[in-house]
């Protein structure tokens, strides 16, 4: 028996919205520790990793580890039937063919349940090395979204350069080129969540496809902060912490000069 209850059901809506354009089908693995999902996009250029700890749920029970093969677009359609303030409960048997989703309105006046058919999905699980990154940038997620959206109008590839002073996002295309530099905030600058913080061992410059960075920014509603982890010649990690429950991390392979 698997049962997981989230008072803030809208969180689940936001998570699926953040993944479904990148990944069409995925196995969500449920265990005593919580929910995890690892999936690559169809062209194997990026990888999305979701982690939701059991302690982040209001109720969590998982007697036996199970894997839920989900069509994320279809799950998104069902989650659209939930109100934004609804409590969402997920339920499945030990050898499930379906996932039951129950939505309860805050005053308990409306209770609905839906069953989503599960799929057998063959996936390749990748071992992600535990890397110490040379640069870690923490910045407002809305700022990152704006930069990616703005630069995507000009070109396809973004050069991200991280130095101690700041992070520079550069793009060039047929119409011209552009740069946006965000500088490290000084300690006195406003709210913690609005700050740009850079931890750097050595400067890093890497090229990335803006199209994929754009997919990642669908996670912006999940939190005020995004963290970028970079080292030379390895995939960037774009990590969105989800307050109190876990995180969603996107890995994107760089573009490399031939």
């Amino acid at each position: 028996m698997f049962e997981a209850r989230l008072t803030e059901g809208s969180l689940l809506k936001k998570i699926i919205e953040a993944i479904k354009d990148l990944v069409q089908e995925a196995n969500v693995d449920c265990s005593e520790e919580g929910l995890t999902m690892q999936a690559m996009d169809a062209s194997h250029v990026s990888l999305c990793s979701l982690n939701m700890r059991h302690g982040g749920f209001d109720h969590y029970r998982c007697d036996r580890s199970i894997s839920l093969g989900l069509n994320l677009a279809n799950l998104g359609k069902i989650l659209k039937c939930a109100g934004n303030d609804d409590v969402v409960t997920l339920k499945a048997e030990d050898e499930p063919d379906t996932l039951t989703l129950m939505f309860e309105s805050p005053n308990q006046e409306r209770i609905s349940d839906f069953e989503l058919k599960l799929m057998d999905i063959e996936t390749e699980h990748l071992g992600i090395p535990n890397e110490e990154y040379k640069c870690t940038i923490s910045m407002p997620s809305g700022e990152f979204q704006r930069i990616v959206r703005d630069l995507a109008v000009i070109g396809e590839t973004c050069i991200i350069t991280c130095t101690k002073e700041g992070v520079k996002f550069s793009v060039s295309g047929d119409l011209g080129n552009g740069n946006v530099t965000v500088r490290q905030s000084s300690a006195a600058d406003g709210d913690e969540k609005d700050q740009v913080k850079i931890q750097m061992e050595e400067p890093v410059t890497l090229n990335f496809a803006l199209r994929y960075l754009g997919f990642f920014t669908k996670a912006t509603p999940l939190g005020s902060t995004v963290k970028l982890h970079m080292s030379p010649d390895v995939p960037i990690v774009v990590e969105y912490p989800i307050d109190g429950i876990g995180s969603i991390s996107y890995f994107l392979a760089p573009k490399i000069d031939e």
Binding site: M40, S43, H44, V45, S46, L47, E124, H125, L126, G127, I128, P129, T157, N207, A209, V234, P235, F251, A253, P254, K255, I256, D257, E258
Partner: peptide, 14 residues
């Protein structure tokens, strides 16, 4: 020109 690398060239299959 830059070439898009695949995720599979960085992370090994489990």
């Amino acid at each position: 020109a830059t070439k898009q690398k695949s995720m599979l060239s960085f992370f090994n299959k489990k």
